[in-house]
Design a protein around this nucleic acid. Structure first.
Ligand SMILES: NC(=O)c1ccc[n+]([C@@H]2O[C@H](COP(=O)([O-])OP(=O)(O)OC[C@H]3O[C@@H](n4cnc5c(N)ncnc54)[C@H](O)[C@@H]3O)[C@@H](O)[C@H]2O)c1
Ligand SMILES: NC(=O)c1ccc[n+]([C@@H]2O[C@H](COP(=O)([O-])OP(=O)(O)OC[C@H]3O[C@@H](n4cnc5c(N)ncnc54)[C@H](O)[C@@H]3O)[C@@H](O)[C@H]2O)c1
Lengths: 218, 218
DNA sequence: ATCATTTTGTGATTTTTTTGTCAAAACGAA
DNA sequence: TTCGTTTTGACAAAAAAATCACAAAATGAT
């Protein structure tokens, strides 16, 4: 650990993966694990695992390895799993419905407490027990109830307006599902889920693989 | 270009983003763009843009920059946008519904041609005009109709079985929405969409940001 | 208690990725 | 055409990330 130097994004993005694998180990009733064994399961080098974990502290013990439960707890703590984040979902459409109905985000500390939409037939209903309010009421809602994260699943054309209003209302975290890249000021944290991009990368890699297969067969 | 050396994943993952920005430029009727101007819009360095594009060929021209339309076409070609991929969706639940209803994948060359589910009340219906068949029929379906990509939105417990069967039937590309990391043999291309991981990273970054804000205010 | 074995934590090294730099090419105004 | 300006493509340098390698610590069998 020592003097908290900035942790790189590359490391951060691996943490949830460690967290998942450790949870699997707990369910398998495996109490201890070496970086070597974990590296085989996760298909990354043992060295990287040790280096990653050492960014946060010396969680292991020489000649023993890591205690699964306490390592799980540590990573959970680093990721802030014990914290609760209040989330507002914008757009009760196809994607919004899927997210609102997914139970697992709650287990990770994320509570969707309210849904905003502009369609008259949706306002007043509830999804998975979460009330759908009219988006025009967002400002007054956000004034009275604290919201950490805005989950944006509105159509692209609505993005500029909604984003600006959400930020103005003081929301600091945005989980963006639209293909737009949000350009926001300092201090706003945006995490994009660009599904089309992901699919296009899959397409590219698949073509590459098929080309390779063809070459090998030749 | 020269002798096709392996393009790094870092570059590949940026291509869809270039593609999106170029499309925006076309809609804005901007015919030419320099790496410098694009770099300002995209918030990456001009050097990186030039280097990325040069992995595939010299698309630009000194003193002029890049022709937007032809660069767009080139990147589209690299990403295989003109190709069509036949996709089978597994799991007509919340996420499956959202994906099946999304029109934009088709514009990128991905056709969801069939949906498989195991629930009796879903089999026989259609989502967005795509027939929902019983998952037990997948083997015979995949034997007669070629499928490039399996989109997996089944519950975690069904993942091992479905994955094994899909691979056995010869599908080479998998778009995985479950939190499981698939361990498959060589030659199968997997692209994961780990939404919970993404959300946890957002949570981490948000905490970090709030800590920073607090420190600055002090 | 001893000792061979295991395994971490860490600094060094290598590899990969990003950024900087500039000669040469093409542009476009005069 | 000429010439100052723009801008690429390529290469060099820097930075970041991943891997290697090993001393030191702890284990666990005898
Ligand atoms: N569905 C998918 O699989 C998918 C995939 C990739 C990206 N996306 C992106 O996610 C976003 C939503 O997609 P979707 O398929 O759920 O769309 P959708 O049309 O099903 O849902 C959009 C919802 O937003 C509501 N809405 C419209 N304007 C609004 C406003 N100003 N304020 C609040 N709500 C408003 C609509 O009433 C609707 O309920 C889009 O940006 C889309 O590009 C979706
Ligand atoms: N909904 C989300 O927002 C979300 C977010 C993150 C991850 N996921 C993941 O996506 C997957 C699906 O989530 P969901 O919310 O759509 O779940 P869901 O329960 O709504 O849908 C699952 C569907 O799969 C079908 N199914 C079950 N067993 C099957 C089998 N053996 N073969 C074919 N179909 C089968 C069910 O009948 C159901 O229609 C899960 O792995 C989940 O962890 C979902």
């Amino acid at each position: 650990m020592a003097g908290d130097k900035k942790i790189s994004m590359a490391v951060i993005r691996r943490l949830p993966r460690y967290f998942r694998y450790l949870y699997d180990l707990i369910r398998l009733d495996i109490r201890r694990i070496s970086s070597k064994e974990l590296s085989e399961r996760m298909d990354i080098t043992a060295s990287q695992i040790r280096q990653d974990l050492n960014c946060f502290g010396g969680f292991g013990q020489q000649g023993y390895g890591y205690n699964v439960q306490s390592l799980y707890d540590e990573i959970g703590r680093i990721l802030g799993v014990e914290r609760r984040f209040s989330c507002a979902l914008f757009g009760a459409g196809n994607m919004g419905n899927a997210l609102a109905n997914y139970e697992n985000f709650q287990n990770r500390g994320f509570d969707i407490t309210v849904i905003f939409d502009s369609a008259a037939d949706k306002v007043g209903t509830a999804i998975h027990g979460i009330p759908v309010l009219h988006v025009d009421g967002m400002e007054s809602f956000l004034k009275s109830k604290h919201v950490d994260i805005a989950i944006l699943t509105v159509p692209n054309r609505a993005m500029p307006d909604i984003t600006a209003r959400v930020v103005k209302a003081g929301v600091k975290g945005i989980w963006n599902f639209s293909p737009t890249d949000l350009k926001l000021g300092e201090g706003i944290v945006v995490e994009n889920v660009h599904l089309s991009d992901s699919l296009m990368v899959l397409g590219y890699r698949l073509m590459e693989q098929l080309r390779e297969d063809a070459a090998r067969r030749k």
